[in-house]
């Protein structure tokens, strides 16, 4: 139904089982953080892993989604569903505008342009009154979902976040395995050829970019709802760097890699929190190690070892 192969079904069921069991063992707030990061990384992977374009500005979409959800929850008292949906739509709309500019170049220039555009969004958020500047938007209420599900309970919130993640995950998987996704992979492998076959490659890239940004915005909005806060960190380029690391570490262009990467990176941040500034050094070191010796990532290595596609 979603184009899963047999090993992928098994991996998917294992992942779902872990999502169901883990809140009874681990702290649900930490797990929600992992799931938001996982959705963000899956969305990012859609661009880098399947279209072959490295966006170094995905924090812009994640952060704007986070701001919009936080703002609409706090000041418009929207239903959580609409607030999160607006977060996603904001990401998609911003993705349409910035993507339209960025896809004019490819490769290394695409990375630099997205980085620069995201930096512009960052400066905008720093100055704009609605973001609360350095303070961010704090004390955002979680509110209710569909009017009757109270989200202030961590466990209830957890199931909602889990549903959002799984929904996004399946959507991405469906996109990748659709005819549209096949064209994307064709563009990644040989763009001139795809053009000569009559595909408007720019349109395909832009649609993929918008989808990726929309899901990033949804991830940001969900994160804002969970923690009740949206800050400049969400739009800062270090967040863009982190999602690249997450995806690379988990396995670029694999279905389950980004989720695995999110689990590793978030655990690292959580358990190394007392190490302070060393976290950056460790992250940077892992980044270099991944690029030099571990380019397939965790899931990619497993898949290669077992000769599977995961």
């Amino acid at each position: 139904m979603f184009g899963f192969s047999r090993p992928q079904w098994i991996a998917f069921l294992v992942m779902v089982a872990l999502i169901v069991v883990s809140p009874f063992v681990l702290y649900p707030v930490f797990l929600m953080r992992v799931l938001c990061a996982a959705l963000f990384a899956c969305a990012f992977n859609l661009m880098l892993g399947y279209v072959g374009l490295l966006s170094f500005g995905h924090a812009a979409f994640f952060g704007m989604g986070s701001y919009v959800t936080a703002w609409t929850m706090k000041f418009w008292h929207l239903d959580a569903f609409f607030a999160m949906a607006l977060g996603g739509l904001t990401g998609a709309a911003l993705g349409l505008v910035l993507g339209y500019l960025a896809i004019r170049r490819s490769g290394i220039y695409f990375a630099m342009i997205t980085l620069a555009l995201a930096q512009m969004v960052y400066f905008f958020c720093l100055e704009a009154p609605f973001t609360g500047g350095e303070d961010g938007i704090q004390q955002v209420p979680r509110g209710h979902l569909f009017g009757f599900i109270d989200l202030s309970n961590d466990m209830t919130m957890y199931w909602v976040v889990a549903a959002v993640f799984l929904g996004g995950f399946l959507m991405i998987h469906r996109i990748i395995h659709s005819p549209f996704g096949q064209v994307l992979k064709g563009i990644r492998e040989n763009e001139p050829r795809a053009t000569s076959l009559g595909y408007r490659t720019d349109d395909y890239k832009l649609i993929a970019f918008v989808l990726s940004c929309g899901l990033s915005g949804l991830a940001g909005g969900t994160k804002a709802l969970v923690f009740g806060i949206a800050t400049l960190t969400d739009v800062h380029y270090s967040t863009s760097g982190e999602v690249v690391l997450t995806t690379l570490l988990g396995g670029l262009g694999t279905v389950f890699g980004p989720a695995m990467g999110a689990l590793i990176v978030m655990s690292m941040e959580n358990y190394l929190a007392q190490a302070g500034a060393w976290v950056t050094v460790i992250q940077g070191g892992i980044f270099m190690l991944c690029v030099l010796a571990f380019r397939r990532g965790v899931i990619g290595e497993i898949a290669n070892w077992r000769k599977l596609t995961l």
Binding site: G107, G241, T280, V281, Q283, G284, I286, F287, V291
Partner: peptide, 19 residues
Amino acid sequence: LDHLYGLLLTFGLSLVIEG
């Protein structure tokens, strides 16, 4: 390798040096 790996490596490097 692809040019992008150079970008990623030097990004990691900058995190290490700044940290």
